[in-house]
Amino acid sequence: MDARASELTLTEARRGAEEWFAPWVKDLGLVVEEIGRGRVRLRIPKNDRLNRMGGILSGQAMMAVADTAMVFAIRSCLSGGENIATVQQSTSFFRAVADADLICEARVVKEGRTTMFGDCLLHADGQAEKPAAQATVVYAVIPNR
């Protein structure tokens, strides 16, 4: 375990959902369902405002959810004094999500001193065996000066 680690509690993560993000991210309505060291599970309730034509959840919303989920997963590995910033995200889409909540399960794959790597799987609620998308994300860890 990294000496800087201090696991983020579910209460702290839920408070962070209200404090850490821009208003439009909060408008996604995300719910932190589970959190542990280096992992998080978010739920995005079905919301027609996030859909594109045809009633399908937009890829842009799914990408934002994956990036947001990684914030929680990474912060659960840090002491709290560091800032973090997205460096790269690559998302692959496998199937549409329609008329269902979106679940995003994110995990830190590699913890580095200055860079962290993560993976997110997204699926419609109740369909974990049928991933809708996968995102790999790289974050910079920026120490406070």
Rank of each mutant, 00 (worst) to 15 (best):
M1A: 12
M1K: 11
M1E: 12
D2N: 08
A3V: 08
A3C: 07
R4S: 01
A5V: 09
S6W: 08
S6K: 14
E7G: 01
L8A: 03
L10E: 07
L10S: 10
L10C: 07
R15F: 14
R15Y: 14
R15M: 14
G16S: 11
G16E: 09
A17K: 05
W20I: 07
W20Q: 08
W20G: 02
F21D: 03
A22M: 10
V25H: 06
K26T: 11
D27Q: 13
D27I: 01
L28E: 04
G29A: 11
G29S: 07
V31L: 09
V31Q: 12
V32D: 01
V32K: 04
E34F: 04
I35C: 00
G36W: 06
G38W: 05
G38N: 06
R39I: 00
V40F: 09
R41Q: 11
R41N: 05
L42H: 06
L42G: 03
R43K: 12
R43H: 05
K46D: 12
K46L: 07
K46H: 15
N47M: 03
N47E: 02
N51H: 13
N51Q: 12
M53L: 14
G54N: 00
G55W: 08
G55F: 13
G55P: 06
L57V: 15
L57E: 01
L57R: 02
S58P: 10
S58M: 05
G59P: 05
G59D: 01
Q60F: 15
M62D: 02
M62A: 12
M63L: 13
M63Q: 14
A64G: 12
V65P: 07
D67W: 05
T68Y: 10
A69T: 02
R75E: 03
R75W: 08
S79G: 15
E82P: 02
E82R: 01
E82F: 07
N83P: 04
N83G: 15
I84V: 15
I84A: 04
A85K: 11
T86C: 12
V87A: 15
Q89P: 10
S90E: 13
T91S: 15
T91D: 04
S92V: 09
S92D: 13
S92A: 15
S92Y: 12
F94D: 09
F94W: 06
F94P: 06
R95N: 11
V97N: 04
A98Q: 09
A100Q: 02
A100M: 01
D101F: 12
L102K: 02
L102I: 07
I103K: 00
E105N: 05
E105M: 01
E105L: 01
R107Y: 09
V108H: 04
V109D: 13
K110N: 08
G112N: 04
R113I: 01
R113G: 07
T114Y: 13
T115C: 06
T115W: 09
M116G: 13
F117H: 13
G118L: 02
G118W: 09
G118D: 06
D119Q: 14
C120D: 08
H123G: 02
D125F: 13
Q127V: 00
Q127E: 12
Q127W: 01
Q134E: 10
A135G: 08
T136L: 14
V137A: 02
V137N: 05
V137W: 06
V138T: 15
Y139C: 00
I142H: 06
P143W: 08
N144H: 15
R145D: 13
